[in-house]
Design a protein around this nucleic acid. Structure first.
Length: 805
RNA sequence: GCCACUGUGGUGGAAUUGGUAGACACGAGGGACUCAAAAUCCCUUUUUCGCAAGAAAGUAUCGGUUCGAGUCCGAUCAGUGGUACCA
């Protein structure tokens, strides 16, 4: 053991030993005692950022700690390598996406190795590899056969100058990022997956996700958004057209004072033909980014169509408006406006001076509107005086009986649009005859590869422009045909990669059934930003794969840890802000262990982490002290006999605390704090020479083992000096037997809830015994003598509170 | 806008089931060592009042429940993530 801590040297030595072992095949051959740890694989953007380091360090702590418990742990890593940034880089730097992606992967892979993460690199995969995406093309064709895939017209953000579809993030203030032209909404045919057919199952199975955070489960529930309600038919006054509006509040039917339709509704389009104002209204709001966020934030605007419909019960005339806040893709694209009891409707009615009728009374009969809760009905004819709960049912029955409407269940969840008009993605394996009919590419011709020669200049769709690739001869009829030029949404690849990790080199099948028993993933770790989309699509995909008989269970991820983001100066680290911290630089300066220690110590995993250049020094200092003390104990400490066993009690307490923190609470920051505290005690005992050489060595090894999953390199090195045979395969530490527990406990004395004194007593005393002791305690007496004790609350071994006058 | 989360010293955070607010660190101040500096070690460090003993206030804001609230409930404010084509 060297006298000084040289992280670079010891980390290289340790990593060489770890990365020499190749045993993944053996490991996967049996799923006995299996533990599958998976960190969300990265998009290979160029360099690792601190968010990755945090994610992968947490994964490694879980991996290494479970190995120490004797589990058979599989931890793979790969690359989510299709995506938009590669095309952007191609446009900007004239590099081919494949080349760019591959060089990023090799760079990031070496960075991951430098951090000392224990991956099963033999099972590495990259989603842009035809060996990978062949199987999702194959699977897509299965779904096509089953009728779970369909094609329909759907809107996109269209850049009229670049003649290209823009992603939401490429639309800035309503304009295309490159051309600066105002975006337009354009309808084009696109492929969809019927996720809505699984809405109920996806919702119900959330209850099976015991190891998931409640917040993520709640977000998914709300996203699916199942709601029961009533489709109400409003008859047109002018013809036999019917406007069906969905509502979850049938009890407010008498409060309807207008009807609003979306700008894509048939009536809106019809009206725009004869009315210039309506035409310009619609054109104005068609030039708007296609996102729920921007539609919801936009100031409410509307225009009267001049048409009326009739109230289904009162038969009163109700004006029909076109409004920019009505969503096409939720409900029916028609909203019944109830200004008195809905915030958006209220704002709209105020702006355009529409009638407001209060039909639900609050308890105070106040005039504060809108009133959003349930209450007693008023102004509602035969339903007056009935409470909302009952009225909802009665009114629904009334509508049903008189055929004025129908009880329905709707979902907020929409089918998954999987078409992208981009080059750097997985080709959708179908082709078209001249008559427009769709045909699957024959299985033996899979994978459909991307053409290498392609012109990426940001204009048009590169695959569509590539005639050589696009033109195709139908293998059945021999006729001219054209390939589908859309590629998959990249969430497609990340929806099943956890399966392929188990069998990534299989040329003949998606994955072999012998690996079924390795599923589900035991611990999944990734950023909170994936709480809805990625995780919902992956859950959905797993059910599709289950229905093909490829896996046996219903959910892919048993446990989920969703980690917070890494911030600097209160903001997300990003190149544009110039506030990134380069992990390489940090590793060079302090070593991997210091980075790992700091990033876990700085915040609990699920919270955002504020980066601090100075705090990292603290981690480095601690490791230096650990090294120094280990050296001293090993080299020259030779005391025999322990002066007191307090340090040994602390040894045992620390093992309990750290075990719970690492395995149960996943609270790594407090685990580290407890280890530091124990280290400080040990250091003091050694200074005072009050601990024997034997126990000093035991305590050092315990610290090295407890810290091993967190800072494996330094711990490996210390252990190889102290107990050589255990260093490569350390076990989780055990408590020292026969240590007398401290049977004393501190009792807090409160007077009227305020801390006034502390007394030390034996464990387990009853209230009367405590009272006797308190009578002798001068501090307590000061407050208690001469006062009237109204009440005494005693919490055993913890606290006693006197309520006095 | 909507959904979810967060808010505690100068800073990161701790307080696990409603029971000692500030563990463990960073920074800062003071000291030791040194010709000097770096490194290292020791002491102090929520605020206010006080020589001290100690007292009072204090967990974003306002209110509530409770013997007792950082923790539970209601309202408000601020920040973060998601919002279906960034991944």
């Amino acid at each position: 053991m060297n006298k000084d801590y040289h992280p670079k040297e010891i980390e290289k030595v340790a990593q060489n030993i770890w990365y020499q072992k190749h045993d993944t095949k053996d490991k996967l051959s049996s799923s006995e005692n299996k533990y599958y740890v998976l960190s969300m694989f990265p998009y290979p953007s160029g360099k690792l950022h601190m968010g990755h380091v945090r994610n992968y360090t947490i994964g490694d702590v879980i991996t290494r700690s479970n190995i120490m418990l004797g589990k058979n742990v599989f931890q793979p890593m790969g690359w989510d390598s299709f995506g938009l940034p590669a095309e952007n880089a191609a446009i900007k730097n004239k590099v081919h996406p494949e080349e760019w992606t591959k060089s990023n992967i090799s760079n990031m892979k070496s960075q991951l190795k430098n951090i000392g993460i224990l991956y099963d690199w033999e099972n590495e995969l990259s989603t842009a590899d035809p060996d990978y995406f062949k199987w999702e093309q194959w699977f897509f064709l299965k779904l096509l056969k089953k009728g779970l895939v369909y094609r329909k017209l759907s809107e996109v953000n269209w850049d009229p100058i670049d003649q290209t579809v823009l992603a939401n993030e490429q639309v800035i203030d309503g304009k295309g990022w490159r051309s600066g032209a105002p975006v337009e909404r354009k309808k084009i045919p696109q492929w969809f997956l019927k996720i809505t057919a699984f809405a109920d199952e996806l919702l119900k199975d959330i209850d099976k996700l015991e190891g998931w955070p409640e917040s993520v489960k709640l977000m998914q529930k709300n996203w699916i958004g199942k709601s029961k309600g009533l489709n109400i038919n409003f008859k047109s006054e002018h013809d036999d057209k019917i406007f069906t509006a969905f509502t979850t509040r049938p009890d407010t039917i008498f409060g309807v004072t207008y009807i609003a339709v979306s700008i894509n509704h048939e009536l809106a389009i019809q009206s725009s033909k004869s009315n210039k104002d309506i035409h310009s209204f619609i054109s104005k709001y068609k030039k708007q980014k296609l996102s729920e966020e921007s539609s919801a934030k936009i100031e409410k605007d509307g225009i009267f169509t001049g048409k009326y419909c009739l109230h289904p019960i009162t038969e009163e005339k109700i004006p029909i408006w076109v409004a920019n806040y009505v969503l096409d893709n939720y409900g029916t694209g028609v909203v019944m406006g109830v200004p008195a009891h809905d915030v958006r409707d209220y704002d709209f009615a105020k702006k355009f001076n529409l009638k407001i009728i209060k039909v639900i009374d609050d308890k105070e009969s106040s005039t504060n509107l809108p009133f959003l809760e349930d209450g007693m009905l008023m102004n509602s004819q035969q339903f007056n005086g009935i409470h909302s709960d009952v009225a909802k049912e009665k009114i629904t029955m009334h509508f049903d009986k008189n055929k004025l409407g129908k009880e329905v269940t709707t979902y907020r969840l929409r089918d998954w649009g999987i078409s992208r008009q981009r080059y750097w993605g997985c080709p959708i394996p179908v082709y078209y005859h001249d008559d427009g009919t769709v045909h699957p590419i024959p299985e033996e011709q899979l994978p459909v590869r991307l053409p290498k020669n392609v012109n990426l200049d940001g204009e048009g769709n590169p695959l569509n422009k590539n005639d050589k690739w696009k033109n195709f001869t139908c293998p059945i009829t021999g006729k001219n045909a054209t390939r589908e030029t859309d590629t998959f949404d990249t969430f497609f690849e990340s929806s099943w990669y956890y399966l392929r990790f188990l069998d990534p080199h299989n040329k003949n099948e998606m994955f072999n059934e012998k690996y079924k028993s390795w599923l589900p993933v035991d611990q999944y770790i990734g950023g909170i930003e994936h709480a809805i989309l990625h995780l919902l699509y992956a859950r959905f995909f797993y059910k599709l794969i289950r229905d093909e008989g490829l896996v046996d269970n219903d959910e892919p991820f048993k446990s989920l840890l969703s980690q917070g983001m890494v911030l600097k100066d209160g903001a997300k680290m990003s190149k544009s802000k110039g506030n990134t911290v380069d992990p390489d630089e940090m590793i060079n300066k302090y070593g991997a262990d210091t980075i790992r220690l700091f990033i876990l110590f700085a915040a609990p995993p699920e919270q955002n982490l504020e980066w601090s250049d100075s705090a990292i020094e603290g981690g480095y200092k601690f490791l230096k002290r650990l090294w120094k003390l280990s050296y001293l104990i090993n080299d020259s400490y030779s005391i025999s006999g322990d002066e007191n066993n307090k340090i040994l009690i602390k040894h045992n307490e620390t093992i309990d605390k750290v075990t719970a923190d690492i395995f149960e609470r996943k609270s790594y920051n407090t685990a580290i704090a407890a280890i530091m505290e124990f280290f400080n005690s040990l250091s003091k005992s050694v200074d005072e020479k009050s601990i024997s050489q034997k126990h000093a060595r035991v305590c050092t090894c315990t610290i090295a083992k407890l810290l091993y999953p967190i800072t494996p390199h330094i711990c490996f090195t210390i252990l190889s000096v102290f107990e050589a045979e255990e260093a490569t395969n350390p076990q989780w530490p055990e408590k020292i037997d026969g240590i007398d527990d401290n049977k004393e406990v501190q009792i807090i004395v409160q007077i009227n809830g305020k801390l006034r004194s502390k007394i030390i007593t034996q464990v387990g005393l009853q209230e009367d015994e405590i009272l006797k002791i308190i009578q002798k305690d001068p501090k307590s007496r000061e407050y208690l003598v001469g006062s009237n004790i109204l009440k005494t609350i005693y919490i055993k071994d913890k606290l006693i509170n006197f309520v006095i006058k």
